[in-house]
Design a binder for these strands. Structure first.
Lengths: 207, 207
DNA sequence: GAAATAGTGTCTGTTAGACAATATTTC
DNA sequence: GAAATATTGTCTAACAGACACTATTTC
């Protein structure tokens, strides 16, 4: 008996026009998460890299395996990955894809709504204990932009003073000599320090 | 071109004779994580359930998908699950399997050492912020047994007073009227409350 | 000078972690 | 009563969260 076909799917998030968006591909009726079959000769990683590089013009993208779906109602087993790109990343021409705000999703195929929901939970969760948030921002950013990113993803208002204090104390960012000018007072630009240990300080519930 | 074959593998942990052990299956030379092919008609969940029920005489087992391995050097793509059983669980006759202490592992096939290492990290991590620890214990247990479980898995000594205080304050366990007698003063038996919300109180690093 | 945005400090309540003596049982 | 194990409380340092005003720029 032959195995079921294997594919990878991608949940690609980005922050655009003040909302968190996900990239969806057009399907006969409705939309779906972009996918790619895994052929015999190709590894999962290779299939995912191929899928990603066909969509976005980025060299380095934050990418993480999310979950593998293989329920009985599915035609194929799908290994789903989860990726983050900053707003500057451009879409490549080719497949019909669009960024959809999470609050205004179109009809999605099969179990893709469930997958997307899980990816969003995972994103929110990781935002709180790891440094993934910086993957949604350009290389240099202001503290207000950083806070704004957190507020949009978490869908929650944060206190400016507490936010700044902890971000700076954690040592995860460092200031640059540059400023961003705009409407009001210019804001200092910071950059992420990938070398800083983004340690997960969990308050052990069951120590 | 046909897809690569698909299988599930299982990392099954248990606490036996004062050490954390993993169940391994014999292979031509050496040992490996128990596995099962996923045939076309079967879902991942069904293949895993079949694998598990061929090994252990338990109805309910804590089970969680760990990761899917599909590197280029592999013959098959493997969806790896991670399971915990208490020491009371008995092995079923059939395949040649044995419990190995994690500190005295035999030679393991392919990337199985890496998989096992990841599973152990995940177990330790989850122990700190979720209630998985109870899956390694019988339905009723003393606080000393619970602490002992944590100490063995985390490989770290814990303070008795702080441990008890937080376990009790969290509301995750409730006392029973029974006691366990033995060498010294009898110890009260507690039971896990699956209904209690095992909330993950993370100290937000990046708030 | 009005509007817009950036930047800054303090207080309080809670919690983690360090620490030692008493209580109850068996043999 | 000796040995073994169970049970209990306090103090301190660190941190989360609440909260409001001043600074710098543009138009």
């Amino acid at each position: 008996m032959p195995d079921r076909p294997l594919e990878v799917n991608l949940v690609l998030f980005s922050l655009r026009e003040d909302s968190l968006r996900v990239l969806l591909a057009e399907r006969d009726p409705g939309w779906e998460l972009p996918g790619e079959p895994v052929k015999a000769a190709r590894s999962l990683e290779e299939a995912t890299a191929r899928l990603l590089s066909g969509l976005i013009d980025r060299r380095e993208t934050y990418l993480e395996q999310l979950y593998t779906y293989g329920g009985p109602q599915r035609a194929a087993v799908s290994v789903v990955y989860f990726a983050l790109v900053p707003a500057e990343a451009h879409l490549l021409p080719g497949r019909t894809v669009r960024w959809f705000p999470l609050v205004k999703l179109p009809a999605l195929a099969g179990d893709h709504p469930e997958i997307l929901g899980y990816a969003l939970r995972r994103l929110r969760y990781k935002l709180e204990y790891s440094a993934v948030g910086f993957q949604l921002l350009p290389a240099q950013f202001t503290l207000s932009e950083l806070q704004h990113t957190y507020e949009i993803v978490l869908d929650e208002k944060l206190d400016k003073r507490n936010f700044r204090r902890r971000m700076l104390q954690s040592g995860i960012i460092e200031s640059t000599p540059r400023f961003r000018t705009g409407e009001g007072r210019p804001a200092r630009l910071y950059r992420y320090r990938p070398d800083a240990v983004a340690e997960v300080k969990t308050r052990r519930l069951f120590p």
